[in-house]
Design a protein around this nucleic acid. Structure first.
Lengths: 117, 117
DNA sequence: GTTGTAAATAGATGGCTGTCGATCTGGAGC
DNA sequence: GCTCCAGATCGACAGCCATCTATTTACAAC
């Protein structure tokens, strides 16, 4: 999508003054942007953001059966959101008997957090 | 989407051991989650994330004509991404003659950044 | 006026997303 | 074996998203 090091804008200028002096280029490469955008996208849903919030605030692993009644969505939809978070590398899960326990992967949000700060 | 204060999981337990002891509830309310999710969603695209990066690194306002050659997308698509960022309250723009200058709104990312940290 | 240019908008399209009900999976207990 | 339960997966559907080309808007210079 993005070109990494295209330094000079190639657009032709009219006879008048130029639009601007400084030459601007992206500081982050495509891969890093794609990685962080994937995390941000996973957080870009209110349910998933609250899920991460609950899992982060709660030390240890949280059973799915505790998460379901917190939201006004069906169990399959919640499972879908948890899968999205898992695919983005933000959470992971562990099965114990009938129940599944989810927890936040500590380093998952680090890159995005550092970039934002 | 999310219920704010549903404290006790209502699911029936089988005769065996319960899935977990602690009662979990969301710490952030629906409105705050929706606000932050909107910002995260706007950052959930590699082009937009790089756009914000360029605008943040560059002090002052950047002309659109400088942004276009940085990406492998058409000018209308870039304009669409800038509109998304503006709708999310992350950037704003100013028109000067033929050119449009975009800049980051400093407080826009603060709430999400604080939550992540 | 006409011409040229920067940026926004319109319209179309293929793909992805959030949601649901229904079903499947695999343990637990009998 | 059978039954019950938690959770994941399936299939469908409406809505949104990223992208394009084509057009429009608004300004500048002639």
């Amino acid at each position: 999508m993005a070109v990494d090091l295209e330094l000079a804008p190639k657009t032709k200028r009219p006879a008048g003054e130029p639009c601007c002096e400084p030459v601007v280029y992206p500081d982050i490469d495509r891969e890093r942007a794609a990685r962080m955008a994937e995390v941000a996208k996973a957080l870009g849903d209110p349910v998933r953001l609250q899920l991460v919030d609950v899992l982060r605030k709660h030390a240890g692993k949280v059973c799915v059966c505790e998460l379901v009644p917190l939201f006004d969505i069906s169990q399959p939809t919640l499972s879908h959101h948890l899968k999205k978070l898992r695919d983005a590398g933000i959470v992971d899960s562990e099965r114990r008997g009938l129940w599944a326990y989810y927890y936040v992967l500590p380093d998952a949000l680090q890159e995005l957090t550092a970039w934002l700060s």
